[in-house]
Design a protein around this nucleic acid. Structure first.
Length: 349
DNA sequence: CGGACTTCTTCA
DNA sequence: TGAAGAAGTCCG
């Protein structure tokens, strides 16, 4: 969590409605004890305090969230993206998933809950949005920012959706993203509706049936576009489009019970993101080339390097110029390193 | 980019 | 000596 100084700076500097909410609950509690206008009955009901959900808004370096203490997942996670803030070279390999130090143990998820559960630990605020700061990226690995997510969905469709959000900063100066888990009612054979979900591990971490993402973009002041999406927490291949999962913001609010962007004027009047922009996720070829490029960068020897190219060929994809260049550069790097190694070994003898 | 899982190291 | 953290290997 951020320091008190940061939070108060946020309140007085930016005048955020979210931060103001913290103050509101604080004042509310104070009223219970000190407000003389409360009836004696009301004071008596609250004699030992009222139940607290711990639903306070939690602030981190580059994301803000509300945590669900019963489900051991976030309720929502908010970010602001811009081209400038996406810059950086911080590597996620230096980060590790861990319990959020500010969530009490009895309400917290642990790594063991996810281990061999059949579900992956899916970021809501992505690590890839935080390459500018090691502290910010490390905080996204807190389990308060994580939900149990289908492996293939996480590495595939959802991954491409996150890439699309980053890509939006090339066309819009400001991008706001809110992400979170969702439990959708499912109809039964006899016409009833039932919400059911798996829980995993000793701490019963709730597995969402769906994930949602709400994207608000702005190019110039006053020119906004908005897209709300509900994605099944299941494998989704390249035969699905993002647009087919779009819903209205009021439908998303109905399902989540959350009022998003409460300071935003007439959300239903705002142009649809998919009409204003493309909502095109990376296609199979581009995505595979991109992943191969990342793998080439991390290849440690020639065998691994050749394997990456061979797998591409098997998929029927011919490397583009960027990938060929990355391959040649890595190949020279490995050969030089091996040559240096030989010299060092010779000198030791 | 998104992950899991195993093995090695460290340290009380 | 055993648990926790760091590093390495693997996959989509």
């Amino acid at each position: 969590m951020m320091s008190i100084r940061f939070i108060s700076g946020f309140v007085f500097g930016a005048g955020s409605g979210i931060a103001a909410f913290k103050f509101y609950t604080f004042e509310e509690q104070k009223n219970v004890k000190e407000n003389a206008d409360l009836s004696s009955i009301q004071r008596l009901i609250g004699r030992f305090g009222f139940p607290q959900s711990g639903a306070d808004t939690r602030f981190y370096h580059n994301h803000v969230l509300s945590y669900d203490q019963a489900r051991r997942t976030p309720r929502w996670v908010a970010e602001h993206l811009s081209a400038q803030r996406l810059l950086g070279e911080v590597d996620r390999k230096h980060c590790r998933f861990k319990s959020d130090p500010d969530v009490p143990d009895r309400f917290s998820a642990q790594n063991e809950d996810y281990f061999r559960s059949g579900w992956s630990r899916g970021h809501m605020a992505p690590a890839g949005d935080n390459k500018s700061s090691i502290e910010a990226m490390a905080e996204t690995f807190y389990l308060s920012n994580i939900v149990p997510q289908n492996y293939e969905n996480n590495a595939g469709f959802w991954n491409r959706l996150e890439m699309y959000c980053r890509e939006l900063t090339e066309r819009f100066s400001d991008v706001w993203v809110v992400s979170g888990p969702l439990m959708m009612p499912a109809p039964t054979d006899d016409g009833r509706k039932i919400v059911s979900y798996q829980v995993i591990g000793k701490h019963d971490v709730a597995v969402p049936t769906h994930l949602y993402k709400l994207i608000l973009v702005q190019k110039d002041p006053g020119s906004l576009a908005l897209g709300a999406f509900i994605i099944p927490n299941a494998p989704l291949g390249f035969d699905h489009t993002l647009a087919e999962f779009q819903v209205t913001i009021s439908e998303l609010e109905r399902l989540t019970g959350l009022h998003f962007f409460p300071e935003l004027d007439r959300p239903e009047q705002i142009p649809s993101l998919c009409e204003h922009d493309s909502c095109d996720l990376m296609d199979f070829r581009r995505f595979t080339l991109y992943i191969s490029g990342r793998k080439i960068k991390s290849a440690m020897n020639l065998q691994k390097l050749e394997k990456i190219l061979k797998e591409l060929e098997e998929k029927g994809i011919t490397p583009d110029e960027y990938l060929r260049e990355a391959y040649q550069r890595k190949r020279r790097e490995i050969l030089e390193r091996e040559e240096q190694q030989m010299k060092n070994d010779g000198a030791e003898r």
